[in-house]
Amino acid sequence: MFFYMKHKQPQLETIYREQLLEIGEILRQTREAQHQSLEHLAGQTLIRAKVLSSLETADLEELPEPVYIRGLIRRYGNALGLDGETLASQFFTPATLRRRVSWKESPAAQLRPLHLYVAYILLMVVAISGLSYVLKRTAPTTSQLPALEPLAPNATEPQSPASTPTTMEPENPAASSQPDKPIRVEMTLTAQSWIRIIADGTTTFEGVLPEGEQRLWTADERLVIRAGNAGGVMVSYNDGSQETLGKPGMVTEVAFPPNLDNPVSLAF
């Protein structure tokens, strides 16, 4: 299981685990809030309970390759009443990691019957077509769905999908109520990304923002921005020049202190 990742750089495995931890926590909290067991959901999704548990705990050793993990996330999320498509879109798989060795180059190509090779090719075509379909579904409306709301830190208990409010907000209350705070960070999204904002030690926003969204975040002493797709987030600190938060598909956390010109960045 997950043998393709073992031959890649350790940093890539860290990226996948970081993304899957966020998604797995949503799945686990929602399942427990609905009082459903893994065995019951395994019967609904036709996914083994051990694999469902591995999705929740980001146990990559028990999971298949990234392109198939997205399909498992989508099916599990839909079974819980969440938007499985939105959850799956938050598990980024860089195009360089999706390349497969041709079956003609594989040693197994000389050991298996021809009809198995044909079936393998058809399976790969279906998988790639499905992945292409998922990547195209990045319209702004997906950010208005409640898939990521169970992670809200101020909630006393996980909320059901039907009662969970949308993570999109028409205005930025922190910025409009106190525009003259010493720390001001303007944000523009060039691609959809999951965002968490911590102002002076308090989480003020957490959710998915669509491409084209613009926000202003403020703080008195410290502002921390955490993005699931850092390459799609542009930030400007205290009316300075806009810069990209990080690389596409990478989870990046950046802190903005009030008396430093350059924020501290930490990429995962």
Rank of each mutant, 00 (worst) to 15 (best):
T204W: 11
H40N: 11
A155F: 02
Q9I: 03
L123I: 11
K104A: 13
G24V: 03
Q178Y: 12
F3L: 09
L87V: 11
T244R: 09
P173R: 10
D59T: 09
I69G: 00
N78H: 12
Y4E: 04
M5C: 00
S177V: 10
E25M: 07
K247A: 15
M250W: 15
R99K: 10
G207N: 02
V125W: 06
A95D: 08
L123D: 15
H35Y: 08
P10H: 02
R28D: 03
V251I: 15
L87D: 02
L116D: 07
R137I: 06
R215S: 06
F268M: 12
F205R: 01
A109S: 13
P165V: 05
E56G: 01
K50L: 13
Y237W: 13
V264H: 01
Q159Y: 09
I128V: 15
L209N: 00
S236N: 06
A227E: 08
A58G: 04
G207M: 04
I183S: 02
K247Q: 15
A162P: 00
K181C: 04
G249L: 11
E186F: 07
V101A: 05
E206D: 06
T45Q: 01
K104V: 11
P173T: 14
Q29S: 02
E243Q: 15
R215W: 02
G228D: 05
K50Y: 01
E206C: 05
T86W: 07
